[in-house]
Design a protein around this nucleic acid. Sequence first.
DNA 1: TATTGTTATACTCTATAACTATA
DNA 2: TATAGTTATAGAGTATAACAATA
Lengths: 153, 153
Amino acid sequence: MNGFGSAFLLAQVGAHAAQRFAERIGELDLTPAQVGLLRLVATRPGQSQQAIAAQLGTQPTRLVALVDGLEKRGVLERHRNPEDRRLYALQLTDDGRELMSRIAIEAVAHERALTAALSNDERGVLRELLTKIADEQGLQPGVHPGYAGGRLS
Amino acid sequence: MNGFGSAFLLAQVGAHAAQRFAERIGELDLTPAQVGLLRLVATRPGQSQQAIAAQLGTQPTRLVALVDGLEKRGVLERHRNPEDRRLYALQLTDDGRELMSRIAIEAVAHERALTAALSNDERGVLRELLTKIADEQGLQPGVHPGYAGGRLS
DNA sequence: TATTGTTATACTCTATAACTATA
DNA sequence: TATAGTTATAGAGTATAACAATA
């Protein structure tokens, strides 16, 4: 029992969760920003870099180096859009899809390790409460500021 | 209902909580790092800069500019320790204590706004679950990585 | 010689603005 | 003229190492 409210605990445990996840995917030579990008491309393939930048809440210029690295690594591809040759359509390669499955394995292990103190019922309650907060606060599912890495506006 | 686990939700909601709190204290012309420092000095006055750096999980060199700014502002004071003149003993001024009470007011308002979607009972359950996780994960009460602001190691 | 606090240097990261090509 | 993507420049922020004062 201490004097800290749930808002402080949320920030503290949330930052810890992000750090531990970053360590895990760091073993796959990935950064949180790269995982955020890969996740968006996997969920909705064919989007332009600017569309993805808007969803990540980051600047379009940041995507250039981000996509460069993942493309050089062979997990992501730029395809020119024939209808508008200014746009790229980003898509995963076969290696990219395999990488995503390895990320998913890490995410499951991370989830289990982080909530090791909770029972299955408690895990469900926690997710329910957090979902309520996220909905009321207008947070977009699947994206969080850690992916952007930017400063506070 | 989405496919994201409670670990992801924790990171997402936690980052959102930290951002909103940073916005609030930003209206008091304070950064999260400054608040973390002030909180430690208020809780245990008289500590050296290196002792505080260790608790914040940051480098001692960062504290110089941090303390400089707050001292110039008149909320914090460096007192030489007579027993060991290498050490400073950091203490709040009267203005500093007044500032802390204003921070506390913001913290309460922040808490209420962030958990507006929950009932009082649910708020208690959330705090209980988060405390369980924080204890099991070995997190120190009252300090979180947002105060350090550093990169992942 | 070891330690506290300070300063100086280099490095990383980000944001802003110009530039190329396509429309 | 407007937009997608790229590149270049400058700025903020951090870490590392060297330095002065004290033990």
